[in-house]
Structures are given as structure tokens and as C-alpha cells.
Amino acid sequence: MRVEIWSDIACPWCYIGKARFEKGLAGFAHRDEVEVVHRSFELDPGHSKDDTVQVVDMLARKYGRTHDEVRAMEANVAANARAEGLGYLTEGRDHGNTFDIHRLLHLAKARGRQDELLNRAYRANFAEERSVYDTEVLVELAVEAGLDADEARAVLADPEAYADEVRADERAASELGADAVPFFVLDRRYGISGGQPAEVFAQALEQAWKDRPLTAIGGDAEACGADGSCEVPQGGGNGNGS
């Protein structure tokens, strides 16, 4: 069975949702027969590659909130992340264009190191003070994931390297009706939107294994939209991030 996951490194619910999915997968009897493929989805494709801003400043402008309100929003997301055993910095993180990161993830996929690079990129972006929008940081992460530094640097220097693969993933997301991430598709039969609880993923894996038609599972959950916005809690929610 194949599970395809559309996500963006800038999406906190993708970071959290990946951890929750993996918990659901860990208890699945047929987990060794599941192929997981990570696919590209840019939340903010129009963002200039040369314009990197602080997440708190970006969210305050986007939602018309004060910095204190944004910090409270980020604290809610951090609580969700930490409940899954993930680190999360509420301040000091960068926000920018993620196209190069997606291109590098396709190189990692071709070399069988995609999950390793994605994990390191998420951790660098959300839990460490390492900007994933810096070329040298990306090369460092690639090496940590088992890729060759010169090959990673060459891909990042060539704007067309793996660009078609990124765009193909994004077209596929559009064709499937995915307008928010994370978005999980199981054998092109079941679709799951948002960072659902681990139990929802476990249920979906069981149902997909029985070869049922495509069904939306779990109702609404926190996600980041195609316009680059993430859901803003209206009080008592799980929080929000970039």
C-alpha cells in the first residue's frame, strides 16, 4: 500500500501531522508493506526567494494580530508539538520561499534518503535555530541525511533541477482537490486532511487495506491553506503557526 503525504516545511501542522501519522502506522499490522512518499506543496509560492522574515512578524501582519496574540497562538501550536515529543521554538524562526527545499527533497527521494532529510529539515525549522532558507544550512542538512554535499549544492545552484518534479506534485494535489496541508492519500482511495490524531490514521490504514473507495476521514482538523494561511484558533483550539 502506498501513502502519499503532501506537505510544506513551513507548515507546523505538517510537522505535527507526520509524527501523528507515524504513531498510527507503528501500530498497523501491515506497516512493513506500506510505502510512504512525501510530495511537495508550497504554501507561499509567490514569496520572494530573497525575502526571509521572522515568523512572528509575518503572522502579525497576515492576521492583523498583535505580537502578544501571535505568541499565544504559537504557544498553542508548541503545546501540540511537545505532546508528540517534538521540539518547537515559538520565536526566532524564519519564513520564506520553500521551493529550493522541495527540490532538494526530490534529490533525497532519488537517493533513498527523503524521510531522513525531511525529518532534519522539520527539526531545523521548528526546533533549532537553523534557517532552512539558507543554502549552506540546506547543504548541511543534506549531508546529515546521507546525501553528497557537492551534489546537493549543485542542485541548489541550478533552479531547474527537480523543478518539474515539484510542480508535478503540486498539480497532482490540485487534481485531488487538496487545498490545505498536510494531506494524506492512501492508495489513491482514502484522503485525510489535517494533522489528525494517531487513532484516525490507524483507522484509515485499516480501511484502506480493505480496498474501499476514496472517503474523507476524521472531519476538519488544523491545516495550512493554499493561500499560505494557517487556521487561526477562535479560542480553545489547538493553535496555529506559520
Results as ranks from 00 to 15, higher is better:
A161I: 03
A161E: 02
A161R: 08
V166G: 06
R167A: 14
A168V: 10
E170I: 01
E170M: 08
E170K: 07
A172F: 11
A172G: 09
A172E: 10
A173T: 06
S174R: 15
E175F: 07
E175R: 15
L176Q: 07
G177F: 02
G177S: 05
A178W: 04
A178S: 12
D179Y: 08
A180Y: 07
V181S: 10
F184Q: 08
V185Y: 03
L186R: 01
L186V: 07
D187A: 01
D187F: 00
R188P: 00
R188A: 07
R189H: 06
R189S: 06
R189P: 02
G191L: 03
I192R: 02
I192Q: 05
G194Y: 06
G194S: 05
G195L: 01
G195R: 05
Q196H: 11
P197D: 04
E199W: 08
E199M: 08
V200I: 13
F201G: 04
F201V: 04
A202L: 04
A202S: 09
A202D: 01
A202V: 08
Q203S: 15
Q203E: 15
Q203P: 11
A204V: 04
L205I: 01
L205A: 10
E206T: 12
E206W: 07
E206C: 09
W209M: 04
D211F: 12
R212L: 14
R212G: 09
R212S: 11
R212M: 13
P213R: 06
L214F: 15
T215S: 13
T215H: 11
T215Y: 15
G218V: 05
G218T: 09
